[in-house]
Amino acid sequence: MGLEPLFAEVGAEGRAALVGYLPAGFPTVDGSVDLLRGMVDAGCDLVEVGVPYSDPVMDGPTIQAAAETALSAGFRLQSLFTVVEQVSAAGGRAVVMTYWNPVLRYGIDAFARDLAAAGGLGIITPDLVPDEADDWMAASSAHGLDRIFLVAPSSSPERIARTVEASSGFVYATAVMGVTGARDQVGSAAEGLVARTREHTSLPIGVGLGVRSGAQAAEVAAFADAVIVGSAYVTSATTDGVAGVRALTEELAQGVRRTPSTIG
């Protein structure tokens, strides 16, 4: 059920999972299916299908621009389920990453039902904290979806405990205080945050925000269970399309398989 088998598999291989993000509908609905399938085919263990949203306060310029492209091209929420279905049908595993208002508007239970029916495994909720998530807790349980909440370098021990308690599948650790976007260095706060989070849970912990290269993936894989890459995928899709995201996936997939001692 959910993401547990995935982390069992990659754990058995002694490596971290590679998680790649792209918005649904970017640059078009069909185009996003091709890109996401290319990522799965080239070695993404899990894809995060983003919901383009008009007010993405956690996103930097790269993902903002991708969301605007998708919305300008006429993206409608119903297409999200089509994209997830087609990625799942191609053998991929998918979760959805969405700001909360589109889910609220669709209806929390209806959204969970339709996502589960499309083969989606869970939702990452960047602006929903467990404090406001009672309805989502109920809907996710009813439809067998994982709840991936976020922890941040600023999270207190009490907040971390509360967040992991509400989470399932994995916990998303934001590597830096800031918005999405590729960075030269992954924040030094990430390793400490993962360690602090592990004190409260045996769930896998994924690290995102800022990863863009195989070397960075290897660095993060040394202390995390999943390496999450977003903006770098948007950039490679923009410049080189499916070939671009495949090439990036291959580099990152090697990174998550490298042992820490080879980082140099």
Binding site: P126, V129, D131, E132, L150, V151, S154, S155, R159, T174
Partner: peptide, 19 residues
């Protein structure tokens, strides 16, 4: 938790909850 009836609350990134 800042609710006026069903309204209000905190729909914010975890990173800002501490602040």
């Amino acid at each position: 938790r800042g609710h006026f009836g069903i309204f209000g609350g905190r729909y914010m990134p975890e990173a800002l909850i501490g602040a």
